[in-house]
Design a protein around this nucleic acid. Structure first.
Lengths: 194, 194, 194, 194
DNA sequence: TATGAATGAGTCTTCATTCAT
DNA sequence: AATGAATGAAGACTCATTCAT
């Protein structure tokens, strides 16, 4: 809505975003009312609508902002690494690390995935992330390091492993990132057998 | 609410359940009102509350019923099979097959997973299913057919692969079950490498 | 919204319509909240939306219903009269009589005329009424009883006279209908001069 | 609010007035927010309240200013004319001409006429204008040029004709002022008959 | 003078649930 | 078993107005 904000404005906006993220993660999106959010920040109701067009828009922004942050993290992790398999390993680690540091977002993303209205935004985010993984896989196949199967499906499989392990081991069981990461990596690279 | 239902009553209840499932899958849980459901069935609003204590309860029932059905399907698939690795393969195939035949439930389960109120029910369902997988994995480890790593994490990894591939390949891309199944199995068993 | 209503339902609907009309006339449309209306009827807020899709829709219905009533009155007045000039006279009288008996509607119609959203509905009502007047005028011209000028403009002029005199003499000054009617008729038929 | 304004101040005030008039005419009074007005002028919200005590006050000012302008126009038209009938003719023409040149105000006045809050202001404006017309009529009656009927009612009738024809022929159909004027005059002076 | 930010009462509307018949 | 009607708490959002700077 607003394009140019004063320093104070940017801060308020950030407060609202952060507060909303926390409340959404704690109580869920629908159970959290705009009134709850502004009360938590300690401002009037109008403030919310000065900075955001709607509650939905705020969530959408949370989604895109978190995705931006996650991708930045992933890309920093693989910067300068040539080996595609190694890039996959590092990407998995970066993703797990990011979620460990931003646990709130996991619940938010999971909610959004189950809602008709936000699924499209998430789908787009996922596409982008997937495309990266697919690229690494294709390079790996060319190099002969990765078995020659449908790269898209393989990418999905990796994402599935990471998502599930994030939820169970990081969010649920609070295991150390490295350990979880190692398990995901070894499962993805070597599978069950031996 | 009712314990004993007439034949007609059981049918009504079934209609409501089926109609609700369809509408929840199409439009989402919250966007579907009780009024929508009874209108779709063509009955008055009171009927709904004759058979269900609340809208939430109906969803919970949908969740447990679908889980019961899925498990039955999985168990039928592995009945009489001794090889644990083979049991895992068959379980994956059965799961994918079930979702292919009950696509509506995928959306419903996904919604429930993102909702504070229903996550517990799902978590329980998942526990049960996981326990099965873990058992197979442990046997496989004892047999020396499966690498000796944390069986719980491995089970989660498998579930993640199946969930993601269900969503992408079955629901999204409408690929044939066998093909998807084969890919999931080979990924889980052999991993990416070679 | 509802199509089939029980007797009780029809009554409620009528109460809401009548109450709303009174309040709109007394305080204006915008200053009257849905809460005011249901409170005046003594029912819960949901009842309003059981019978009407929105506050706007209720007003629209008030507008069309009142128009229907007015037209019925006008047509009853001229039924069986052949002389077009006489029909104009009788139509003017019927219109004034109707407004005298339904003073509330005058304010409502006047409000609606000034609102972008309802002007179209009114415009349509006016078209219909105008068409009648034009027909009479044309017949009068053919008969040689009425001067041969643009019938549409003449019809508008008559409507203007009636509207203004309704507002001033009936609503404002509470003059007897017959007297006002006579003045309108003589003005329209004979003009100012002598 | 302010009594003495700088040149720049007067200009700003004028901009706000003009912009508001345009927006009110285009979208209606209530649908136009103060935010819309200041955005259209390109200033901050505070500016509005520097020059006007409230949105209502701005509209009231628009109403009185437009009335002042209209009256000036009418009086210029009849200046130095003795014949009362001729003065009526000229007044009608001047009124139609003014509205043709200030179409925006028609919608604004029409809105105000239907609003409890502004009707009084308009009523007063109308009184003044009516008084003029009544004076001409009375003189005409004394002269024997105008039939001896209630001058107030006659004045209202004339105003009704002019209002309706303004709306229909000028605003709606965009007919040339002279033509509309001639029709109004002939209707008012001669009526329908012959 | 001017601005961006803040206020908060007030509005419409939805909907799960209950009730009288 | 079933219905149409009723309830009312709760929610998102608007906007005229005010304030700190």
């Amino acid at each position: 809505m607003r394009q140019e904000l004063t320093a104070r404005g940017r801060e308020r906006r950030g407060q609202l975003l952060a507060c909303a993220a926390r409340l959404f993660a704690e109580q869920g999106y629908h159970p959290t009312s705009v009134a709850d959010i502004v009360a938590a920040v300690g401002v009037g109701k109008g403030v919310f609508y000065w900075y955001f067009a709607s509650k939905d828009e705020l969530l959408a922004e949370l989604l895109t902002a978190s995705n931006r942050s996650l991708r930045k993290c992933q890309q920093a992790a693989i910067a300068g690494v040539d080996d595609p398999v190694r890039r996959i390993e590092l990407g998995i680690g970066a993703t797990l690390g990011w979620f460990a540091a931003h646990r709130d977002y996991f619940a938010i993303i999971q909610f959004a995935a189950g809602d008709e209205k936000f699924a499209p935004v998430l789908a787009h985010n996922r596409e982008v992330s997937l495309a990266d993984t697919i690229r690494h896989i294709k390079e790996g196949i060319v190099d002969g390091r990765i078995a020659d199967r449908d790269p898209e499906m393989l990418a999905h499989a990796i994402h599935g492993v990471v998502a599930e392990c994030t939820q169970h081991a990081l969010i649920g069981a609070d295991m150390p990132v490295d350990e979880v990461s190692e398990l995901c990596v070894s499962f993805c690279l070597d599978g069950l057998r031996r």
